[in-house]
Simulated scan of single mutants.
Amino acid sequence: MTVIAPAGFEAAGVAAGIKRSGALDLAVVVNRGPSQQAAVVFTSNRAQANPILWSKEVAKDGVVSAIVLNSGGANCFTGPEGFQVTHRTAEAAAAALGVAAGDVLVCSTGLIGEQLDGEVLEEGVLSAVNRLGADAAAGEDAARAIMTTDTKPKTVVVDGGAAGARWRIGGMAKGAGMLAPGLATMLVVLTTDAALEASVLDRALRQATRVSFDRLDSDGCMSTNDQVTLLASGASGVVADEAEFTAALSAACLDLAAQLQADAEGASHDITIEVLGAVTEDDAVEVGRSVARNNLFKAAIFGNDPNWGRVLAAIGTTAAPFDPYLVDVSMNGVRVCHAGRPDRPRDEVDLAPRATHVRIELHAGEASATILTNDLTHDYVHENSAYAS
């Protein structure tokens, strides 16, 4: 039931006519309250789409009544006219819902540099508002409406609290390419019926995204439109414990991040890079990311080649403190490198399964981190060479 699983939310997804295919391309998620508290994190890319510029202002007071999301066009680098389209979209939703335009977030995803038709978006918003519902079909349509190159919708539901004081988190995400920190080329909407203030939501969301979406690094490319939104209705009447809520939210984000990884464009391997024995967590992240962004390593995995030398070459480019001649590397449970020297034979490593686990032990400290990535395939190159055609 995705974003409408928690009490207090309605959603809809419609075919507004943005996509030439006639597929669903516009979603609306509404928080019916009694509270409209929210937190949002945005791409760290300095090149930001018009919806990001609008939504950053909306999010400042921590109050959000609704969010409109469209696929089929990023509305990025489209000048003042593009910003007016975003403004018009928010105004249309506000008028239809009886809320303030300054409490309506807007998200867009698709091709950069193409103008969106404001009239089409406005009519799509009105159509979506007329179809708002809190049933499974409404949530499914909303999740499908935000897809671009995704092959399937990504949704999650996590329950929390104790007997008699339960609360729930729901969520939907889109993303299949440009998956790299600065979040990813993702749009994510998370909802909860827990009664929490915006400041608590903000702390929880930043912690959850730090260990999930910010560690998904499929192709090293950062989007202009990334936005992860958390809306709280308070409809359960339960004030969730902050630590418990943060853990549940992190679990939801990790689930969605894994779904994004599994649907990455053209990928044939989902690679989990686990770094152990770093001096600090940041060092572990830097080491893991150096491997995730190494095209030689990623191409080797595509070819089912356990080329551990490419792992060592990649991590040697980092500033993290460790001795490369003490490092161990394992692939799918086989330690192929021990103390910077060959260990088990390469042919003992089975890289045929899609799930690939690389374990790097630095022997420099106690910190660890995990990075998610994919291999580099012919299909990835073909899909991205033909994206705008």
Rank of each mutant, 00 (worst) to 15 (best):
F213E: 06
A194V: 01
V188K: 04
L183P: 03
L205M: 06
E197K: 10
T191G: 07
V200H: 04
A176T: 10
A173T: 13
L190S: 08
R166I: 00
D141V: 00
A143W: 09
D150F: 07
R206W: 02
M172Q: 09
M178C: 12
D150P: 03
G170N: 05
R168I: 00
W167D: 00
A142T: 09
A145D: 04
A194Q: 03
G161R: 09
L183I: 15
T191D: 04
A180V: 00
A165W: 01
Q207P: 00
T185E: 13
A180K: 14
A142M: 10
G139L: 08
T151E: 08
R210Y: 11
A142Y: 04
K154N: 07
D202I: 05
D202Q: 15
A195T: 12
W167Y: 14
L196M: 15
K154I: 00
A145N: 05
G175L: 13
G177S: 12
V158Y: 01
R206H: 14
A208E: 12
A176K: 06
I169S: 01
A180L: 02
V156L: 03
F213S: 05
T191N: 07
A165R: 05
G170R: 08
D202P: 00
T209I: 15
L183D: 03
S199H: 10
G177W: 04
T209V: 15
A208T: 07
M178H: 12
M147T: 01
D141Y: 04
T185S: 12
G139S: 05
G160F: 04
G182H: 12
L201K: 10
T148P: 12
G160C: 12
T185M: 15
K152V: 14
A184S: 15
Q207E: 15
R168Q: 14
T151V: 09
A145H: 10
L201G: 08
V211A: 11
V189E: 10
E140Q: 14
A136L: 10
I169Q: 00
P153I: 04
L201F: 07
M147N: 01
D214S: 14
M186S: 15
V157N: 02
V188E: 04
T191W: 06
R203Q: 14
V156I: 14
G139A: 08
A180F: 15
G160E: 05
D159V: 00
D202G: 03
T191I: 12
R206G: 08
D135G: 10
W167T: 02
A162G: 03
Q207R: 11
L201E: 08
D159H: 14
D193M: 04
L179H: 06
A173M: 11
E197S: 03
A173H: 07
T192Y: 04
D159Q: 12
D150Y: 05
A195L: 14
V157H: 02
